[in-house]
Structures are given as C-alpha cells and as structure tokens.
Design a protein around this nucleic acid. Structure first.
Lengths: 343, 343
DNA sequence: CTGAAAGCGCTTACAG
DNA sequence: CTGAAAGCGCTTACAG
C-alpha cells in the first residue's frame, strides 16, 4: 500500500486560525448562505487557504452534494481509421469539460456485449451524466433508454435511429451529401457520381438526390455507384474498386461525391492511372476533411464532420441537463472545404 | 437542480434483513477481517444485494479508503495526424483500466502553459496516479517531477529526456530504425536512404546507422536525406520534397527508410511519377504501421509503434506503483510489417 | 459470531 | 456575526 499523500484540509486551516470548519468551508466555497463573515476574517481565511494551496477533496464534496463531478463517455469506435474523427470529438469535449471543471470517464465498446458489461459495472454510478457516441445497435439502444429512465442524464450522438426521448447531437450527414454535391454542381458538374453505401436510409444519398433535384439535374440511376463488397466500406480500396468498375462499364460522369476521404483518394488514383484528369475531367470531393486530404499528391476537397463542435455541444448540453434543463437534439452544419480536386 | 437518482444503499439492505451495516459491508466487500459470518446469513445478504443490484457508492469507499479509483492521463498531441497512434494508446489503456476497475481522467495539453493549468487545477488531486504522454518540454518535465515528489505516482511515455527518477515506458524508436533498415538490407538493399529529422539525438537514425554497420555496409553521408524544411515534418509533402531533391541531385539509392508512413507514401508517389519501380528498383518502408499503409495503391511496409501495448503497460505499471511497487522503465520492441513496397 | 461507533473530508440547516 | 452538529455512504478497528 502506498502512503496516502498528505493534503491540506479544511480542519487544518480552521484550527490554525482558531475558527470553525464551517466558516472556513463557507468562505472558501463562497456559499455564505445566511452567514455574514467579518471582512478581515474572511480575508485571513482566503489568504491562508491560498498560501497552503488548499483544494477541497472533490470526493467529499461530491459525496455531500450527491454529485460526482464527472461524466462518462462511451464510444463505439467511430470514423474510418485515420480519419481522426474520434480525436476531434475528444478534443472538443475536453475543452468544454475543462471549462466546467468536469472530468471524463472514457470507455470503449465494440459490441453490445461490451456495452452491457459497462452497464453492469459500477462505472455509470460514478458519473453525473453520460454521453454515448458511435453507432447504435438495437440492444444498446434499449440499454441506454433504461439508464435514462433510471434518471441518469444521457445524451447520444447517433446518426441513425436515436434512442427515443433522448437528445441526440450529431453533424448533419444529410447536409454533407447535399453540400458536397451542390459544390460540384456549382463547379460545373452535370453528372456527378455518388458512392453509395448499402443501407436504405443513407442520409448523404438523400442529400445528393436533393441537391441534384434543386439544380434541375436528372439523376441517372447508374450514377449511384454500388458494389463495394457486402456492407459499408469507407476505405481506400472501396474507392478503387467502385470507380474501376464504373469506368469499365463505360459510365459517363464528371464528378465524384465520396463518402469518405479514403474512398475519394482511391478513386482519384484509378482516374490518374487511366489518364483522366482531376479536376479538369472529373471533380472529386470526399467526406470528413481528414488528414488524408492533404496527405496526397492532389489535395482533396472534402466536407467536414465538425466533430470538435459536436463534442463541445454534447458536453454543454449534458451539463445543462444535469442542472435540470432538458436538452434539445441538434444537427451541426458541415462545411465544404475546397481544394485542388474540385477547383 | 436534478433530483438525485435513488440508489440502493448498504443501510437499506441492513434494515431489511435486520442486521448491521457493518456486516452487510463486510460480506459484500469480502473483507471479513476477524468476522466469521454464519453461512446462511452471508448467503442471504449476498442474495438480497444481488436482487437489489446493489453497488457501493465508489465515492464513499474511496473517501474512506483514501483512494480515488481513477488515474489521470495527460497527453500532448501525439503522432502524425491520421496515424491513429493516440487512439491505439487509448484503446490499450482502456482495456487495462477496465480490468483494474479504474477510471480515466483525460486531459490534453498543447503547450506547457496548459500543462501548468492542469497542475493548478484540482484534477490531479482526484487521481491515484498519473500518466503523462507526448513530448516533454523542459518546463513540463520539472512540473512532473514536482508532482512526483509530492508523492503522486507518475509514469511517463517520453522518447527524449525523460524526467529523472520517473519510470518511462515507450516503444523502442532506436529499434524501429534498426529493424526497418535491417529489413531492407535483408531484402537486398545495399544503399538504403534514410529520412532524417532535425535533431541531434534522433534514435531512429542511430538504429539506421547501426544496422548498416552490422551488415558491413558503408554509410554514404549523402544517403542521410535532409531538407524537410525547418524542424520535424512527418507529413506527406516532406516525403515528396526530400525524395525529389535526392533524385534531382542524382543520388543513387535502392531503398528508403522513412520516419512516418505519410513521408513514405509521398516518396513513393514521386518515384512512380518518374517511372522508378517500387519495390523492384527502390524498396520503401515507413514508420507507425498507420492506416495510411493500406490506404494507398501500393501497400506500404512499415514498422509498428506498439502503442496499444505501451498503453496497457503504462496502466499496469501505474497500478502496481499505486500499490507501492516502484515501477521500472520499459522499452517496447517494434515489429516490421512486410507489405508490397519492400517485397 | 455480530454490531456499535468512529471516521474519511466536506457542506449546510439550524441554533446561538 | 459564528459555530456545533448532523449527515453524505461506506469501512474497519474494536468491543461485546
């Protein structure tokens, strides 16, 4: 066993100055209540506390107040590897947490089993609120709803099927698709292709379709490129495969809206190998504005995911929630970052 | 204010079963001490606790025991953006933390000012130990040493100038350089070039030099490629710039050891544009084994940084430290991952 | 074999 | 204007 670090306590100061614990506590916390301290005494206490570098033991305060001073973050692995989406989320949260003097308890989960373990650990009894981010599986969703019903303030960051009655804060994936497509159209594209993922409620695809409609451009179904294996694949090779197939099929297109930056780079590589000029013949835009965009021969345009902003708002809303103000769901608007590939 | 969630307490169980708080506490925690409970009573208590899904309030236990049940992680942003090094570190830590039932308090710092703020917040008084990772600036180093002297268990993960008297756990950068170089030599390279960074104590460069020596290969100083702007630059463009210059200077080389995967990919792109075949004419190996390696037309060989392993060991050592066992510094051995670019 | 009691360090309603 | 006292929920040395 380690000897406990010795720290200054309220009692130490009280004894030294010949006043009561109560008074020291009140003066230092600033919660005077009905108490009216003599100004000189107050000053003396504050001065001594500062000299001794006193800090209340957060455990004791929390125990007394019934607060923990900490929030939990449970994340399903998010973003393409290399996208830095998760890092951005954390940084955004971290800043906001510091402002509120809160601490973060972090937990990863890879599947609903792990999530259940979390719920069965005491961890969630050690936080004032919870943020759950990543993709929601139906089992985890009901677990979250249970925690919420038990009175734990919970906020999620899900794109699909958010838990019912729980505020959900995410970037606007629909607008990502729409803005990216509108950007290419604005640059002169008439037949931008779109990299589909295999799910029927793909928000970005909706955005693509609406952008086309608003520009009065017909949507040739063959512009909706599929074939990225079974399931969702945001990686490099998916971009290669899909665009290779499209070219081999003789598809005519003058733009590509990709659902990740890696897909976009994969596609660009194929185009270059076949001497198709980017951006002159085909303009390309990715998604996420990840480091990949500038880590390539041709600088890739992209639409942001604003994860840092999302992180900050998640924390702020949760803090308000803990203080009793029921939060609203929010959709954060992405931005198009124009670079060489769509100029 | 939020109504506090109501939870089951020891007292509730005690009253219900007509026994004392003490007994319930002892039975549940398993710390019987001199106490010898009647087996049937013990069973009754455990059964009821389980039914009620009782979990001790960690705050109270911690307060009583003088432990916090949490450790702090302060990180300087690490790794090239997109390298996922930080994520790997976190995942490694997270797993180990869960095993020990510990929680993580996360804090980023970008400069020593922020680090000082951290030290001035009460946060470090709410953890049983601290892990500091990233690059050490001299000011932060002395702050860390101070925390350590005050009795806070601290472990660092620094590559250069670790704080004195504090255990330091990192991957072996020297071996990264050496193993990567040896790999290329084994594949037949006689004149592998090395991407230098501008610091006189570059461990990877030492590794490169030693690998060459052990293979009895002469080191032509012009193989040590500099010119990546002022300071360290691990990014894509640095690789392009350096290798372009080398080729323009007519340098003869048959391999490249890069200090990041992005640098390597940048270099490969230049080589391909000039119709120099990778790996036939030039074998290339990167560093970090980041997602970039497989997100490229040619799959990039790389040498790992083992951050997940580092993360796990940091936590394990810190836990031991908290329990009174002074930890040792450790160097984690990296592994070469062979892919297309050096085959 | 079991429980009463003190205590971890703070906070706050209440009494003086 | 200030302090004694109770209490947050648990733990443990000690008494019975």
């Amino acid at each position: 066993m380690n000897k406990p670090r010795k720290t200054v306590k309220i009692k130490d100061i009280a004894i030294e100055l010949g006043v009561s614990n109560s008074l020291v506590s009140k003066v230092i916390s600033g919660n005077l209540g009905t108490t009216k301290v003599r100004p000189d005494l107050q000053e003396k206490i504050l001065k001594r506390a500062k000299e001794l570098d006193f800090r209340p033991n957060p455990l004791s305060s929390a125990l007394k107040r019934g607060r923990f001073g900490a929030i939990g973050l449970i994340v399903h692995p998010i973003g393409v590897p290399g996208s830095e989406l998760f890092n951005k989320l954390l940084i955004g949260m971290s800043k906001s947490l510091n402002q509120h003097g809160l601490r973060l308890w972090l937990q990863f989960y890879e599947d609903s089993k792990q999530f259940m373990e979390f719920c069965n650990q005491e961890i969630y009894r050690s936080v004032d609120g919870l943020i759950v981010a990543g993709s929601a599986q139906s089992e985890t969703r009901s677990l979250i709803e249970n925690l919420h019903k038990e009175g734990l303030p919970v906020i999620t960051s899900f794109h699909h099927d958010p838990a019912s009655g729980i505020a959900n804060i995410v970037y606007n994936a629909y607008l990502q698709g729409k803005l990216a497509t509108a950007h290419l159209i604005e640059k002169g594209c008439k037949r931008p292709a779109f990299f589909c993922i295999r799910r029927d409620d793909d928000l970005r695809q909706q955005g693509y379709l609406d952008a086309m409609k608003e520009a009065n451009l017909p949507v040739d179904p063959s512009l909706l490129l599929e074939g990225m294996g079974s399931g969702i694949d945001y990686r490099f090779l998916a971009g290669r495969t899909v665009i290779t197939k499209a070219l081999d099929n003789g598809l005519q297109f003058d733009g590509i809206v990709a659902q990740s930056d890696q897909q976009a780079i994969g596609a660009i590589n194929v185009l270059r190998e076949r001497n198709i000029s980017v951006p002159n013949q085909v303009r390309v835009i990715g998604t996420d504005d990840s480091p990949t965009c500038t880590a390539s021969t041709i600088q890739l345009s992209s639409v942001t995911a604003e994860l840092q902003e999302v992180g900050g708002r998640l924390v702020n809303s949760l803090v308000q929630y803990i203080d009793g103000k029921k939060p609203e769901s929010q959709l954060i608007t992405p931005t198009v970052i124009e670079r060489e590939s769509s100029r």
